[in-house]
Each structure stands twice: as structure tokens, then as C-alpha cells.
């Protein structure tokens, strides 16, 4: 199982990584080796094993719906590279100021 250079570029793009040509070549080999290693699992006969989504039997712990104070704004904004009017100030995302389509 070998990744193509295009696949490596796509993965790098999704992770917002700017790779050099040499890095792309190196990571293509490394990522392919990882996939080959994990692919050994495909050889196991799992016909008699039900699909397993979680290996824990425990259920998610739950929290009562009671609000409590968290961080102050100043504590939060200590992590901001730039701030303005109590908010994180950021550069335009797509260059043209178009809002994101994400929800």
C-alpha cells in the first residue's frame, strides 16, 4: 500500500502544512510505511467478532445542567496574538473577507 504524492499533498493541505518537495517525498514513504504496518490487521479473520466501536463497557459520565463561572476574559486573551474590543483579532481568512460556509 503506497500513498501517492497527490494524497500526501491533500493531507498536508487539510492539516494546513506547507511542505517542501523533499518533505513530501520523505513523508510519502513514512506515511506509507505506517499504513502498511497497520494494514497487517486486515489479515485477521474477524468474521465472528461484532463491530467494536468502543472497548470500554462504561457509559459516558454525565454532568448536571448547572452553570459555573469559567475563565475571565483577560485570562483567555492572554493567548491572543492580537486583541481588540475584548476579542481575538485575526487576519482575513480567505483573503477577500468572505465569511466561511462552515457551521
Amino acid at each position: 500500500m503506497s500513498l501517492s504524492l497527490q494524497e500526501v499533498e491533500h493531507i498536508a493541505q487539510l492539516a494546513r502544512l506547507d511542505l517542501s518537495e523533499a518533505e513530501k517525498a520523505r513523508y510519502r514513504l513514512q506515511l506509507s510505511a505506517i499504513l502498511d504496518y497497520v494494514a497487517q490487521l486486515q489479515k485477521l479473520d474477524t468474521a465472528s467478532i461484532p463491530p467494536t466501536a468502543s472497548i470500554f463497557g462504561a457509559a459516558s459520565p454525565l454532568r448536571p445542567d448547572e452553570p459555573r463561572p469559567g475563565l475571565t476574559r483577560d485570562e483567555l486573551l492572554k493567548n491572543a496574538p492580537e486583541r481588540e474590543a475584548g476579542q481575538f483579532k485575526i487576519p482575513p481568512v480567505f483573503g477577500d473577507g468572505t465569511p466561511s460556509a462552515e457551521e
Binding site: P61, R63, P64, G70, T72, R73
Partner: peptide
């Protein structure tokens, strides 16, 4: 005011864990 109902969990600080609200 902006950024006043926030905590390490909802602002994605490293090492924090989500705990599900039962009313949700």
C-alpha cells in the same frame, strides 16, 4: 460581553476533557 462565558474546555485549551451535559 464577548468572551465572558468561556472556560478552558470550550476554548480548546490543551489537556482538558469534555463532560456531557445530561439535559442535552
Amino acid at each position: 460581553a464577548p468572551n465572558t462565558n468561556i472556560c478552558p474546555v470550550c476554548t480548546g485549551m490543551p489537556g482538558v476533557l469534555p463532560v456531557l451535559n445530561e439535559r442535552v
